[in-house]
Design a protein around this nucleic acid. Structure first.
Lengths: 207, 207, 207, 207
DNA sequence: AATGAATGAGTTTTCATTCAT
DNA sequence: AATGAATGAAAACTCATTCAT
């Protein structure tokens, strides 16, 4: 599909990828301009469409590329041998913040993808997004020590509540950061806040 | 501000409002076309801009209109005298689903508003959105019977976890519904699922 | 033609005239907006077109109105019994500046008229403008004391050179004032400069 | 800046330039329609904006282009070694008329530029215009034989009066020509008329 | 006389995409 | 592979003018 593109020398590939990610992350799918992308990447108009047939394909490629990259780094760093669920999810929170710090554009892009509801893209993406969420969920739950949880509650519900809590917590923080975009996220405060929720959830769901 | 518009006969107002909501709900702010709106509403291009100076004002008007409408119906139906938090939040879930069934377009529009990240709108809306969320939150917590909760956990954390759980639950259901839009939401199943979470949360957070 | 309008009570007439003059003076014929005029005048859209069939007619009316007003004041103040040409033209310069100070909007409007070359207006106005220039010229020359001029040069050429000199002088000053619009015209400096040209021209054209 | 455009083949460049000059000359900046320009030039709407980012840039380009063209031809033809001021200015008058005859559209366009007062353009152009006037003035006066003039009058005033006289003379002729545009300018009559003013001015300002 | 809702052709500008070179 | 000129539909918005009330 994108074989032609992947045969390019790495430096040019990167120039194009970075330009495109930056544009999409900043403006969302609809408003992103292929004009700006080629200008920033320093290539010609025709070339972009030579490699990626159209805007949508480019976006799809970028999504896969970014997802792959982030997921790889994520699973490289996380210790799936750690069987205590809370310890594992605490790791996940920390790693996500590290990745956000190292790849801010890519992270913003993925975030946009998950928010963007542009009619053009919806059809192709909804399924893809949901699958990814499911896979991640499954991986995060994989091989955890179930014996630590209360046995009088369906484990699956407990895990969902815990996961949702931390997802909502970071969503809220990101929303706050958007409102005062100059300050960005206060990682330390988030960490402290997260710890408090860990305590609560451990208390009520561990036996 | 929109006095001129509100003096129109109701039927025409509705035609315009419905056409606009439909377009914005389907395509989001940026891609929504004022051309399509006037075509659907059966009015001239000039007229739309006679009433609403520009696209942004129209969007703002629609948001206020929809929010007002939904909020009114919501607070009309919900019994804020009910002091048991779970009973109250269970009511909320049910009412939201009823409203979604009765005003699907308006609901989708409001949802779009909360997702839409168009650069054009961001500035004006982020604050507005956050305030509304805060207000709603506050109202849902207002005057509840705090004595029922465990006293060894900060109440504020308990309430957040409960609220987040039901928010995520409905988000997930809506996402699923989007994937197979023909079937829509299976209200009964959601209701049953919600009940199970009520049980879990009552068990762990009530004393 | 404009009988209907002239039957209005004076106060309303003035509101409309002033609003229109202001708008045309500021933006020129093409860009001037009838919308702005009615808003500023506090009348309805329809009414403006009831009195003046269309924009062009309104402009024409205003031109006649302003020209009449300025010309009347001008010829009231100038002393046509003064037979010395230089004294008379010096008076004209002073009076013009006084009028500019008293009726800045009207003056700017007339100036615009003489500059404006909007295709819409051209046909109707060119003749009108030229006639006015001719009439004014004739009046300024009327009954002057010809005996003071050198008899070896055609008087008509002398008068033209003198008139042109002062016209160009004020054009230059106005152009300068436009470049630094905050300071406006420095009347005193212009007056001094004009005096110097009087001296030169007297020296070479009086015998 | 306009490199892309200047790389086009000359024939297409000319088609676009001529179409644009014609439109701007006829209607002035505000009313000129880019739609008409592309139609007349036989190119697509997008292309015009590919070469010139917007209407204002196009206008600016045309002004520079036209000014350059006319100025070059003018200074090619005028003999700046001629030190007699009157002979030199007589040359100028003749050359201007020749240019007007050869490039009527370009001349009309430049004239429009100097009259146009569109708010959009004012800021950028006023300075530009004034500078050009200053430069031209300076060149016309450069290296003239000052010894021929009367020494009892400030030379600068003499030169201004002479220049203004011929400027006004041609302005008047052009205004007359506009009123009966079919006949155009009667160059011979203007020439004869100009000669008479030369005589007068020589008589009074040469010693 | 007076209103102001309504019109719709018009404006400039953008954009993804194509194609000859 | 690479260029970039070229397209033309579509966008938001304006405006003088009309007309039913």
């Amino acid at each position: 599909m994108f074989a032609k593109f992947l045969n390019l020398d790495k430096e040019k590939q990167d120039r194009i990828i970075n330009a495109a990610i930056k544009e999409f992350a900043q403006k969302g799918y609809d408003k992103a301009s292929t004009n700006e992308i080629v200008k920033e990447a320093g290539i010609s108009k025709g070339l972009l469409f030579h490699y990626f047939q159209n805007k949508k394909q480019l976006y799809l490629f970028l999504f896969d590329y970014c997802y792959e990259l982030i997921a790889n780094e994520f699973y490289e760093k996380i210790n799936l041998n750690e069987r205590d669920f809370f310890t594992r999810i605490r790791q996940a929170v920390v790693i996500k913040m590290e990745l956000l710090a190292v790849h801010p554009d890519i992270f913003r892009f993925l975030q946009e993808v998950f928010l963007d509801d542009s009619a053009e893209i919806k059809a192709e993406f909804e399924k893809k997004k949901q699958q990814l969420l499911d896979i991640n969920f499954a991986k995060m739950y994989e091989n955890i020590d179930k014996s630590k949880f209360r046995s009088d509650i369906a484990l699956e519900k407990i895990l969902k509540i815990i996961t949702w809590t931390f997802e909502k917590l970071s969503e809220e923080e990101m929303a706050k950061a958007k409102l005062s975009p100059k300050h960005g996220i206060d990682y330390q405060r988030v960490q402290v806040e997260a710890e408090k929720y860990f305590e609560v959830l451990t208390k009520v769901f561990y036996q």
